[in-house]
Design a protein around this nucleic acid. Structure first.
Length: 799
DNA sequence: GGCAACAATCAA
DNA sequence: TGATTGTTGCCA
């Protein structure tokens, strides 16, 4: 029997199955979707079996070394989903398979050298290396490369390649009695008088005749391992290892919740969903509802119905809002049937959650983007909350969008997909209007709370009136008022492109990264300047390198700066700051939010991460410090993103009894995305933005694809990109437009120059082929000269 | 991706 | 001449 194997080498030439002979002993074992170890050239690699067949066109086949799994890790559906992903995103098969699995299943490779000849036969230089052991790591011997080469040739050493698993299954030691109760009594009696502790442990096991964790025994009786060891030695107890799942929510109790009665509007929205569940029909729904309109309850009750039918559910939420609050709602309703997958878990924890899914121990998965590949085999519904979130698009290969994968999987399982949002992407809303998706609307907040009142403050006027601080008078007024009333405030700072940088006040010099074309970010904590792209670090200069002035200092309005300013204006206010710096430690995010919820602070100050999911009754004021930082990014979606963000942030205020107020500070108050966000008027924003997109020929009127070329040599990048642009143009119809080549918005990263060209098109069946041809054509230069060509079909970020 | 085989270049 | 550095084709 022959196995067709995709080998773990992400390269054009190896992006096809290789045939291997299945050893007779493994014939009944090897199945499609299994990971195997195969010889490839002189090495051993991990590979995925994609097919098992009788014959091969090849004669000199090598054999599979061993399987890496007891059962396939990819089922038929996921295998073909992998093929589809490969086609859609122009990536390698191996990358597609690996993205569908937890990182823990990716192989680790070790290269070692083993001594064969006696130690004193080896060259003197090598001898000390083998002093300790017969096999050493290749890296430890690398300096002696040529000697090693010679010795390997004459057979006194050999190079061995090992394929290793990345994680170990977690095991816990248990103690259990080996004897029955009567025999235990006898054993106890035969102990020496002084063995008081041992006797107590035996008593315990007479009482409770079952395995107990070793750890618990040790702490409960306050004994050392030697006490236990001696009991084991006497044949009274036995130590056993049992595999356990790492449960990230261990020791946490989730209060059970019951389905809430639905409002009229919710009823109306949920019934078409339930109908498709019942009829087992594929359909995409856009659940368009303002913040606080009760979308989650619709998700929960739809899932309920799916579970009753014995099927499974996937719920995607943006990483950023995968907060304990969100998890609580799902765990509360479905208890142990829920697995949670997010980036805060260790790779071992992720793997364990994945295995609970694979073994059908759970029925619901709540997770970020990659949870869309949860290995369910009887999917009944897929829900994508906050559909417009950019985090659903993976920004490196395979550059997939979770929404597309969801729709693909729903077609296989004939089940509904629900896209939920208060501010859907224009693409999605346009499709809903055309009837491609079914539109479900929740126009009102639950309990008819009114939306918060929004005030736009023109910061130019503040400046004219002599207020040079970053807080407008209206905002300071609002802050003072809430502090007096003991109500809470959320201050939102859009950090993007406006983090602290170091600038000379005399000549305007800005400290830039020497490797990348962006300014360095100032970190007060370490007194260093850092590059966010390549990690370059330098200390802040005391004098300007350009004009030697001493007036060089950090600028911009990072959260730290705002915190300082707040401290000056309102010294009595307690502030919790949430940004990358304060939340990088595990669990910090949750801890800070809990503190705020418990009222330990008056003001929550933060970046993007506080825009979503917060639902605290005491928040009555939300302040946006500068609404327009995002508006001026070189991206056709900047208006849309600004609108979404402002609407989202505003939704944090007044979600309960107390009425909410929002203050938006801006330098461009007349911009429609700010005005309409203040009105919370998505429908008008949609119409307005659609006319812009139509005029400029952008999505949803056109599809786009972005080709980015990078290399250390500018001239090469420019000429390659130019040739590519011309080639693409020649392959497409007149309806398509190729823009560029132009220099990328970030013109250099890690010393590599970047050029791009943007393709706008409506229907181009030949496009994917043309793009593949480009990759084929430059394959040589990509492999040997370090040229990089990245192709993103339907990109989200144009940088 | 990474290896071996081969070619080119360099230090004496 | 051997030893290092660069280039290329291939892996079943």
């Amino acid at each position: 029997m022959i196995a067709k194997v995709i080998v773990d080498v992400p390269a054009k030439q190896t992006d096809r199955p290789f045939d291997y002979k299945i050893p007779a002993a493994l014939e009944s074992v090897i199945k499609p979707g299994m990971r195997v170890v195969v010889p490839f050239g002189p090495r051993k690699l991990q590979g995925f079996v994609v097919e098992v067949q009788e014959k091969s066109a090849f004669t000199k086949l090598k054999e599979i070394v061993e399987p890496m799994d007891l059962a396939p890790v990819l089922n038929q559906e996921l295998l073909s989903l992998g093929d589809w992903l490969t086609e859609e995103t122009l990536s390698y098969k191996i990358s597609a398979f690996q993205v569908m699995l937890p990182a823990a299943l990716k192989a680790k490779y070790e290269k070692k050298i083993r001594r064969i000849a006696p130690l004193d036969h080896l060259p003197a230089k090598l001898q000390p290396l083998f002093q300790e052991s017969d096999t050493i790591l290749w890296n430890d011997a690398a300096p002696f490369f040529s000697i090693l080469q010679r010795e390997a040739a004459n057979g006194s050493i050999e190079v061995i390649y090992e394929v290793k698993e990345r994680v170990k299954k977690k095991k816990i030691k248990y103690l259990l009695p080996l004897l029955d109760k009567v025999a235990l009594e006898q054993a106890k009696a035969s102990l020496v008088v002084t063995a008081e502790k041992q006797r107590k442990i035996i008593d315990f096991f007479i009482e409770k005749h079952e395995p107990v964790q070793l750890r618990e025994i040790l702490s409960y009786f306050n004994v050392s391992t030697s006490t236990v060891k001696s009991l084991i030695k006497k044949g009274i107890l036995q130590e056993k290892e049992m595999e356990v799942y790492r449960d990230p929510f261990e020791d946490r109790v989730f209060a059970k919740t019951k389905p809430f009665p639905l409002t009229k509007e919710q009823e109306k929205a949920i019934s078409p969903i339930i109908a498709t569940v019942e009829e087992e029909r594929q359909q995409v729904f856009l659940l368009y509802g303002v913040t606080g309109s009760g979308k989650t309850e619709i998700y929960l009750q739809s899932i309920q119905r799916v579970l009753e039918k014995g099927k499974e559910a996937i719920v995607l939420v943006p990483e950023i809002s995968l907060t304990p609050q969100m998890v609580k709602r799902f765990k509360g309703r479905f208890g142990d049937e829920v697995a949670v997958l997010h980036s805060g878990l260790s790779s071992g924890e992720k793997y364990d959650e994945w295995r609970r899914i694979e073994r059908k121990e759970v029925k619901v998965v709540v997770g970020a983007r990659s949870a869309i590949f949860a290995p369910f085999e009887n999917l009944g519904i897929i829900i994508i909350d906050e559909e417009h979130e950019t985090s659903y698009k993976q920004e490196d290969n395979p550059r997939y969008h979770a929404r597309d994968v969801a729709i693909k999987r729903s077609q296989y399982y004939q089940c509904p997909v629900i896209l939920g949002s208060a501010t859907p992407t224009l693409e999605t809303f346009a499709r809903a209007q055309k009837g491609v998706y079914e539109l479900l609307t929740l126009p009102n907040r639950m309990n008819n709370q009114s939306l918060p009142s929004v005030q736009i403050v023109d910061m130019r006027e503040e400046l004219r009136d002599g207020n040079r601080s970053m807080f407008s008078r209206a905002l300071i007024e609002g802050l003072k008022e809430r502090l007096e009333k003991k109500e809470q405030i959320v201050l939102f700072l859009n950090k993007r492109g406006h983090s602290s940088f170091v600038m000379c006040r005399d000549c305007g010099y800005v400290a830039n990264c020497p490797n990348c074309d962006i300014s360095l970010t100032y970190h007060r904590f370490s007194q260093q300047m850092k590059c966010h792209y390549c990690g370059y670090e330098a200390s802040v200069p005391t004098r300007c390198p350009e004009c030697n002035s001493e007036h060089i200092r950090y600028f911009g309005t990072g959260t730290q700066k705002v915190e300082e300013e707040l401290g000056k204006i309102l010294p009595e206010a307690k502030v919790i700051r949430m940004d990358v710096d304060t939340t990088s430690r595990k669990g910090a995010h949750e801890r800070l939010l809990t503190e705020f919820e418990e009222g330990k602070a008056d003001i929550l100050l933060g970046t993007q991460m506080i825009a979503k999911g917060l639902d605290f009754p005491n928040i009555t004021l939300v302040g946006v410090l500068s609404a327009d930082t995002m508006l001026h990014l070189p991206d056709f979606r900047s208006s849309e993103k600004t609108f979404q963000l402002l609407t989202q942030v505003s939704g944090r205020a007044g979600r309960h009894e107390l009425p909410g107020e929002v203050i938006i500070q801006t330098y461009t108050p007349e911009h429609y995305s700010i005005e309409l966000a203040a009105e919370q008027n998505f429908d008008r924003f949609f119409k307005r933005e659609m006319t812009v997109r139509k005029a400029r020929q952008y999505p949803p009127y056109y599809y786009i694809a972005l080709i980015t070329v990078s290399h250390e040599n500018v001239a090469m990048v420019a000429s390659v990109t130019d040739k590519i642009a011309k080639f693409v143009q020649s392959k497409l119809s007149n309806e398509a437009h190729v823009l560029g080549p132009v220099v990328s918005p970030i013109s250099r990263i890690k010393n590599r120059y970047r050029y791009q060209c943007l393709i706008k098109y409506k229907r181009e069946p030949q496009l994917n082929n043309a793009l593949k041809t480009i990759l084929d054509h430059y394959q040589q230069d990509i492999a040997s000269k370090g040229l990089q060509i990245s192709i993103d079909v339907n990109p989200y970020i144009l940088m």
